[in-house]
Nucleic acid binder design. Structure first.
Lengths: 195, 195
DNA sequence: CATTTTACTGGTCATTCGACCTATGAAACA
DNA sequence: TGTTTCATAGGTCGAATGACCAGTAAAATG
């Protein structure tokens, strides 16, 4: 027998996972709450019950992705405390590449919302991107006016191949989501940006 | 006074330009034909008249973007005929970065459709991506099994900062679409990938 | 055991979607 | 000049959308 609290969290989790998928697949406007409910195996009315509206559900989905990324990066940073800053940045970068591979939705959310101003973009920047950005450059000794170029070069270089994996498969017959391909990409990108 | 043919092409052009904007803003499912018609300043019924349906309009918009990119890259390649391959690849790369800055819709289309299999993804790969890909590696001496990593690293590194320019402005107070920022990025990315 | 709370269901609402249709008037043509 | 062609306007269709609401049953509470 399940307690109410357990059942509640289980259902919310199902919905959020489905929301991450659908929002990253179709973007905010293209995603339908009915589609999310169907993928979660849940009644559509439940979305309004657990999350007030589509916006709040979107924020829950974004939280799910970005909090996990930030947790993994922080964990890696803490595990390497005391090591040389250069080594720490390199390892954080590899962590980021591996996360981009495991969770391509991250980059899709970023591109989807980063392309036009709006409340969701502002929320995403202020809530998750700013902390991630500041954390990263705390260890990377990059001169101020080059940072935007480095940051977005890294973000794009690390994520794109995984974000468009189906396209990559058709274009070159290469599956970038294998363990080996992910490590190859992590090495390649890290050596490129932080030699 | 305008001839019918002139008027026809003018209207089609207005619609395609609006379609490029809306599709890249909202993705295929999120874009509405009514929104496209409004932005083009034409009646909605005209979209069905000039382009049979939403799919065909999307292909016309994709053509508009990718044919221009391929034309600019080919022009640069032809202008440098006889030069060292290394120099040609570097210049083609810079051309690509500049295009990504002038037309961020390119990358948005690529990510939007590349993330899931489907008829639009297949059409995009077979019609435009395959030729671009083969053209590029004709001049870049990269070993076969690293090409996917190089290709998508370049695509992401070159485009992301421009594709999410509004986000970049809010995150770092940096406008990546100035002439100087574009050239900085072109130099940075080119030296990174093709030193 | 009696009562309250709450996770969940099924259905409804106005609105918006893509596609389609007919009417019209001006350009093209005979 | 009279006739045909066709780019465009306006309106309509069923289907899908996000939000909302009353009803239900089971867990929590006393």
């Amino acid at each position: 027998m399940k307690t109410r609290a357990q059942q509640r969290e289980e259902t919310r989790h199902l919905i959020i996972e489905a929301a991450v998928q659908v929002f990253s697949d179709r973007g905010f406007h293209g995603a339908s709450t009915r589609d999310i409910a169907t993928r979660a195996g849940v009644n559509q009315g439940l979305l309004t019950y657990h999350f007030k509206n589509k916006d709040e559900l979107w924020r829950a989905a974004a939280d799910r992705i970005f909090l996990e990324l930030r947790a993994q990066m922080a964990a890696r940073r803490d595990a390497l405390q005391g090591e040389a800053p250069r080594h720490i940045v390199r390892e954080i970068t590899k962590t980021y590449v591996r996360f981009a591979a495991a969770c391509p939705e991250l980059f899709r959310f970023m591109v989807e919302e980063g392309k036009h101003p709006g409340p969701r973009m502002r929320w995403l920047v202020d809530t998750h991107l700013k902390p991630t950005y500041e954390e990263f450059f705390q260890y990377a000794p990059i001169e101020e006016n080059l940072r935007p170029h480095v940051f977005y070069t890294l973000a794009g270089a690390a994520s794109t191949i995984f974000a468009v994996a189906p396209e990559c498969k058709r274009l070159m017959g290469y599956n970038p989501t294998t363990k080996q391909a992910i490590e190859t990409h992590a090495e390649y990108v890290t050596n490129l940006l932080l030699p």
